[in-house]
Design a protein around this nucleic acid. Sequence first.
DNA 1: CTAATTTGTAAACGGCCATGACGAAATAGG
DNA 2: CCTATTTCGTCATGGCCGTTTACAAATTAG
Lengths: 402, 402
Amino acid sequence: MTAPLHEAHPSGPGRVLPDTQQGMRRRNLARVMHAVSAEGQLSRAAVASRIGLTRAAVSTLVDELIRSRLLEELGPERPGRVGRPGSALAVSGHGPAGIGAEIGVDHLAVCAVDLRGQVRARAIRHGANRGRSPEPVIDELTELLRQVVAEAKGEGLWPAGLAVAVPGLVARDARTVVRAPNLDWHDTDLGALLPTDFPLTVDNEANFGALAELWLGEGTPPDFLHVSAEIGIGAAVVVAGGLLRGTRGFAGELGHVPVRPEGPRCACGGRGCLEQYAGEEAVLRAAGLEPGEDRVGLLAGRAAEGDAAVRRALRDAGKALGIALTGAVNLLDPESVVLGGALSGLAPWLLPSLEAELDRRTAGPACPVSVSRLGPEGPLLGAAYSVVRAVLDDPAAVAERN
Amino acid sequence: MTAPLHEAHPSGPGRVLPDTQQGMRRRNLARVMHAVSAEGQLSRAAVASRIGLTRAAVSTLVDELIRSRLLEELGPERPGRVGRPGSALAVSGHGPAGIGAEIGVDHLAVCAVDLRGQVRARAIRHGANRGRSPEPVIDELTELLRQVVAEAKGEGLWPAGLAVAVPGLVARDARTVVRAPNLDWHDTDLGALLPTDFPLTVDNEANFGALAELWLGEGTPPDFLHVSAEIGIGAAVVVAGGLLRGTRGFAGELGHVPVRPEGPRCACGGRGCLEQYAGEEAVLRAAGLEPGEDRVGLLAGRAAEGDAAVRRALRDAGKALGIALTGAVNLLDPESVVLGGALSGLAPWLLPSLEAELDRRTAGPACPVSVSRLGPEGPLLGAAYSVVRAVLDDPAAVAERN
DNA sequence: CTAATTTGTAAACGGCCATGACGAAATAGG
DNA sequence: CCTATTTCGTCATGGCCGTTTACAAATTAG
C-alpha cells in the first residue's frame, strides 16, 4: 500500500509497468480474491470460469491464497445440480483486517473490518475537536486505535493497514493534512504523529464516504456523483469504479460552482457560489437559526416539527443544489447522484426541490437521485474498507508481509 | 478494433479479462510499440530499460514486430557515449495506416496517417451537406476514400481501419448516427452504408477533436477539458489519457450548464443554459448579424475590423463561457482547458473575458486556458490517429490480419 | 593498444498457465 | 440398486515466455 490504489491511472506513453510472469501471477491472485469477494462464496470451478483461467490454474492460485490465510475453504457446497459439488471458498474472516479511523469535528472513531467487509471491532469517543492542537487529539486516537487493534487481534485478525479520514484537504503523499478549517489544523503530518507498524493512508472524509458508497452501497453503479456536506459542500466524482481526484487533488469542489453569477460574494473570490445558498452557514441564516453544536440535527428536528422558515430554507438550498448538479450531470452523465454526509439526514426536505430543478433542466433523460444508507458512518467504513481493497488488489504483497 | 479502445474502463468486480501468457506477450508487444512511438527512435536497450524488461526479451519482441512490418530498423545510432552504439528502431512508415474521415456540415474529408502520425494522403470536397440524405453523401465520401486508400497503397501503406467523425450523437455500437441535427440525419447506420474491408468506427467530431489534442497536441496533459463549438457547445472531458463518455454517452454537454438559472428558456427545457449566451445563434443575434454560411468566419472578420457590437457579443459570450467553465474546473480540476473547433478562431476576442471570469471565480489556483493549434483539422486527424492508436495498443491483432 | 562500457544475441533455466487424463462425488434413469 | 452422465478438483506433461548468464561486437577513455 505504498501508493493509494483506489485511483484511476493513466497507461500513458511515459514509463510503464513491466509485464512479467510474476506480475501476471500477482494479478491472477488478485482476480481470484476479487471474484470470491464479490460473490461471497464460490467454488474453484466457478472462479475459473469467471476469471477465464482453467480449473488447474485456479487450484494452484487458491492453494497459495489459503496458505496465506487470505482465503478459507468452507467445505462442500450443497449440491443442487448434477455432478460433484464444488468446495465453497470464501474470503478469510481470520486474516488481515483493515483499520479505519475518522477524525471528526466533534468525535473520534476507529473500527476494524475483516476481508468480508464485516465490522469486527470499533471504538468511539465524543467531544469537540475544533481548535484543539493535533497532538492531544492524535493521542486520544492512538488510544482508541490500541483498543480496536487489541480487540481485532483477539478475534484472530491482524491489521494490514490504517486509513484515516479527516475533514480537510490532504496532500498527495496521503499523509499530511494541508488544511482542515474545522479543526484549524495546517500542514500536519499524521505520518509522524501516528507511528504504526503497518501502512498508513490519509484522505478526505468525503472521498472515503464516496468510496464506501461505491464498495459497500447496495446496487451502487461504478459511475456516480457523491455529494456530501460538512461545512463545505463537496462532490466526489466516481468514474469507472475509481475516484477522480483532479490534477492537484482539488476535484469535486461543488461548493464553488456558480449558481447565480451575480450573487453574493464568496470567500473563494467568486460570487453566487453554491455554498452561498446551500452551505451550512447560509442555510442556518436563512432559517433564522444561530450556528452551534449539532446544527444538522437541529435543522432536521425543526423541519420535522414543521417549522416553515426552516423548511423554506431547505427547499431553497435544494433548489440551488439542483441547479449546480444540473451542470455536473450535463458534464459527466453519471448513472446516479447520491446524497451523503449531513445531506442524507436533511434529504426529505431537500430532495423535492432538488429533483424538480434537476429533472427540468437536464438535457438528456433524468438522472436518479438517491440518499446514502450508510449515513454518517460512510467515511469511517470507507477508510477501513480501503485497506481491504488494497489487500484484494494485491494479495501477494500482504501475504509476504505476514 | 472491435471495441473503441480510447476509453477509461473499470476493473470492477464483474467479469474480468484473463491474464494468460499470450495476453502478457500481447501487452508487451504494445508496450514496445508505445515506447518507440513516443520517442520516435529508440534502441532495443533503451526500450528495455523504459518498459522494465530485459534486453533479451525486448529483442524477441522487436524481432516479431519487425517481421510484422510494424517496426523498422534504421541502423546504428550515432555514438555519443561509451559502449557499443544501439541500433535505432522506429515505428514503420510503410506498414498499416489509419484512415480518418470527416462528414462536416459543408465539407467531406478523408486522410491517411501512418504509424508515425504523418499524414500521407488526403482528399477534400467542399459543398453543403445540410439536409441531404445520407446515401449520396456517403457515395461521395466513398469516392474520396477510394482515392486516399489508393494513394496510401501507392506509398506502401495498407489501411488498418477507418474512423469517421460526424457532427452528431453516435450510438454505443460506434456505427450508427443517432441524430445529427445539422445534417438532419437520424438513426443512420454508417456500417451498412460504408462497407469496407477493414474495421469501422464512428464517433462524434468533438470527441475526435479532443483526442487529437491529447495525442497530437504539443505538451497536452493527460487531464484536460476540450471545449468546442459547432452549433452546440460541447466539452470533452479527458481524464487520465482517456475520454470520459458518461453512462449513456452524453457526457460533455457543456452547452446546457446553467449560467443564469432565471435566464431565457432553452430548447432543452432549462433556463439560462450556456448556449443561450455563447451559442452560435445567440452570439449572432447579439452581434446583430443574420445566420448564414460560414458564420464563424463572418464573426471573426467583423471582430478583426473592430465592429463594436460583434466584439461586445463575443466578450459577453466569453464571460458566459468563463462562468460555465468555472463550474467544470471546480468539479474536475483539470490541468488545462483547451479551446478547439470554431472557438479557436474566435479566441482572441473570447479569451480575455473568459479568463478573467475563470480566474476570479476558481477556488484553487488558476487553470490555464489555451487554444488548439490543430484548428479545424482536429477531428479528422483525431479520427485517423485513433486507428493508429488501436494498432499501437494491440499490434498482435493487426499483425495476424495482415 | 588496452581496459572499460554498452549493445545485441544465444542457450540454459525457471515459472506459469494450458492440456488431457483420472478419481471423486453428485444426479438421472432404468 | 446399479449404471451412465455430469461436474469438480488434482496431477503430470508440455509449451510459452521472460530471466539469467555468457559472449562477441562496437565504441570511448587513457
